[in-house]
């Protein structure tokens, strides 16, 4: 059974950093981009993220993550290049279709910003086990019950997916049509999803009881089997983030006073 995750096992300093600091890194990146909304700043942030991803030896795994947003990014470039309200200056044309500079610049900012945020997130998700992230958050005050819910989702999804194939086969062998006309496919949806939903909801009752019997609702302060390891780097990172935000405010002020 595989737990759901994008985590890549590597031996790097980035992997050692506390999960909370990687979350703060994302926050800092977004904050800086809001404070200084220029392409120059976004590119700078992106270079830093890419260097860190390189250091973590996971840079190749960033592409599939960006891929999720690839089509929408392309369509943004096209639609904005063609139709942006501020479009005036023709940048280039393909046949009769004219692409405008204003729209292209606008879409470039969007694309860089999105890729930037994706890279910052990639740094977290590629170098941190989801279960470690959740446990770290619980140690820092996240409700252990919410922590439980989050980590159990990670295992429940692969489990439900693995029953999916079985159900498909079973229903097909009973003559269920899963191809062809739309109406047939719509009709097929219920016999497919029905059993999974029923089973998983009915299972929740016994699981809830089993959790109760294992002191899930205990008022005692929770302890942890695993020890934490925090590096020297971890304690200084927070100051680096604060410094970065202050620097970006100064940058913004400099733009204004110009």
């Amino acid at each position: 059974m595989k737990s759901l995750s994008l985590y890549q096992e590597r031996d790097s300093i980035i992997h050692e950093i506390e999960p909370i600091n990687k979350l703060l890194y994302i926050l800092t990146t977004i904050l800086i981009m809001i404070i200084v909304p220029s392409i120059k700043c976004a590119v700078l942030c992106m270079i830093i993220s890419l260097m860190l991803l390189l250091k973590a030896n996971v840079i190749k795994k960033v592409l599939p993550i960006i891929n999720f947003s690839f089509i929408i990014l392309i369509s943004i470039i096209i639609i904005q290049g063609l139709f942006n309200i501020n479009n005036k200056t023709v940048l280039f044309n393909i046949g009769k279709i004219k692409f405008y500079k204003e729209g292209m610049m606008y879409s470039a900012l969007i694309v860089i910003r999105v890729i930037n945020i994706l890279c910052a997130f990639a740094l977290l998700v590629l170098t941190t086990k989801p279960s470690d992230l959740i446990e770290d958050l619980v140690r820092r005050g996240l409700s252990p019950k919410i922590g439980y819910v989050l980590s159990s989702v990670l295992q429940i999804i692969p489990q439900m997916t693995s029953t999916m194939g079985t159900i498909m086969d079973a229903q097909r062998s009973r003559g269920l049509e899963t191809e062809g006309k739309l109406i047939n496919r719509i009709k097929a949806f219920f016999p497919l999803i029905g059993p999974v939903v029923m089973n998983s909801l009915i299972a929740t009752r016994e699981r809830a009881m089993a959790l109760e019997i294992r002191a899930f609702s205990s008022k005692n302060k929770k302890t942890f089997l695993n020890e934490t390891k925090s590096t020297k780097l971890d304690s200084s990172l927070k100051y680096i983030f604060i410094a970065a935000v202050i620097l970006s405010i100064i940058w913004r002020a400099a733009i204004w006073t110009k």
Partner: peptide, 12 residues
């Protein structure tokens, strides 16, 4: 415990 089931159902 309903929550993980709900998320799983969404996915399915």
């Amino acid at each position: 415990v309903l929550i993980p089931a709900a998320v799983g159902i969404n996915y399915i």
